[in-house]
């Protein structure tokens, strides 16, 4: 894609996106940008949630005719519901304290960015009639919205996203027990997620390898697991000057560092970590993508969806 074309697509800069307080509107905007020209409107068919009536056509089963409506209007009409597919999208959202970070002067923190991304992905799933569910990852895994299909399901997820707050340390519950850190998913999730598409939105600052292990376990089946790694420009560049005192928001550990002298080593260490993480996850069948929250989300999302096989 040429630079000019990329600019045309990336019209919603992070500041604008942050200014749109309404998750519904932000999700629609982001998803509509992707759907534009693809004619992926909502599909209708047999199901439980009523969508519309349409005139009977030859070939339609007589069972599908709404005979009560016929008694009133003397016209044969077929009752249609939103098409429910066997596809299921699970959003696993990291809400640990490290997600509550934005670049100095940045419009969005990682968590806000992830919420908008989740809203957009949820909207796409709802438009396709897929089931949608939400789980948060922090000190433990918590089922926020059980998977279900239908138009209202997206609003349930939006309501849950609005209520979420960052805090805690990834896998802290297991850490306190002294056992090896393991992120345990809610009971029944393994069965409920069979064959599902699972998108994990996190910054992947794990204590040991708990998140990698979790994704590996999930991918070890018929599930399609995607890892979306969120990072800020500040984390990428370490832009501070002079000696600064940094503190890890989750562990509380502090460290004096001189970014001017250690920036190169920092970049290298960080790059090595994520490269290794990417290789590990790819080895377990998990696709790993990095999203810079200080770059326009709509263009990045479009590229991500377009490149997704």
């Amino acid at each position: 894609m040429s630079t000019a074309a990329a600019r045309r697509e990336e019209v919603i800069d992070p500041a604008t996106l942050a200014a749109i307080g309404d998750l519904e509107l932000a999700g629609r905007m982001l998803a509509t940008g992707y759907l534009f020209g693809r004619h992926l409107g909502q599909r209708h068919g047999p199901g439980f949630e009523f969508a519309q009536y349409r005139a009977w056509q030859p070939g339609d089963s007589s069972r599908s005719v709404d005979w009560r409506l016929y008694a009133r209007s003397e016209r044969l009409s077929v009752r249609e519901s939103e098409l429910e597919t066997d596809q299921r999208l699970w959003l696993l959202l990291d809400t640990s304290a490290s997600m509550d970070f934005a670049s100095p002067g940045g419009a969005l923190n990682k968590f806000g960015y992830a919420c908008r991304l989740a809203a957009a992905l949820g909207y796409l799933a709802q438009q396709q009639g897929d089931e949608l569910g939400l789980i948060t990852l922090a000190s433990d895994c918590r089922l926020r919205v059980p998977a279900s299909a239908g138009r209202l399901q997206w609003y349930r997820v939006l309501a849950a996203l609005r209520d979420l707050r960052c805090g805690g340390r990834l896998g802290e519950a297991a850490l306190a027990s002294g056992e090896p850190i393991e992120l345990r998913l809610p009971e029944g999730f393994s069965d409920a997620s069979e064959g599902a598409l699972i998108v994990v939105l996190s910054d992947f600052y794990q204590h040991e390898t708990e998140l990698t292990d979790l994704l590996g376990r999930l991918a070890n089946g018929s599930r399609d697991v995607r890892a979306v790694c969120l990072e800020t420009a500040a984390e990428r560049e370490l832009p501070y000057r002079g000696v600064v005192r940094l503190q890890d928001p989750e562990s509380g550990a502090e460290r004096f560092t001189d970014p001017g002298q250690t920036r190169a080593a920092y970049r290298a260490a960080r790059q090595a970590y994520f490269e290794e993480l990417r290789h590990t996850l790819l080895g377990r069948g998990v696709r790993f993508e990095r999203f810079n929250v200080d770059e326009p989300l709509d263009g990045r999302l479009r590229r991500y969806l377009t490149d997704t096989p």
Binding site: L23, A107, G112, C115, C166
Partner: peptide
């Protein structure tokens, strides 16, 4: 940020 925790 319009959405996100107050701690952010």
């Amino acid at each position: 940020a319009a959405t996100g925790s107050s701690r952010g």
